[in-house]
Amino acid sequence: MLKKDFKLAKKENFNVGGKIHVRVLVAVTTVLTFLIFAQLVFANNLAIDGQKLSQVEEEIKNLQAENTALKVEIAKASSFTTLSQQANDLGFMKPSKVTVF
């Protein structure tokens, strides 16, 4: 092989190697870009879901608290202590005599 032919072949080889390198780089960059983008979307969704979950949990807590408060109110209002006081205030009296037939 002539010296000139050898140089040409080397240059062509280099061009082929360079082209492959560039393709790999482009592919890796694309995949990385896609992954970064996916990560961003995923993280964003997680943040939104976390916020939503937080809101739902807060709502559950509020409803439970309201439920508890209402139960306590019912218990207070229907306790014998309260009812007898109200009956007294309204002038109700116990029967002085009970007759059994």
Binding site: L46, A47, D49, G50, Q51, L53, S54
Partner: peptide, 10 residues
């Protein structure tokens, strides 16, 4: 939790 105090679900 994230810096805003919301749970991170991962």
């Amino acid at each position: 939790k994230d810096p805003f105090g919301f749970p991170i679900l991962v």
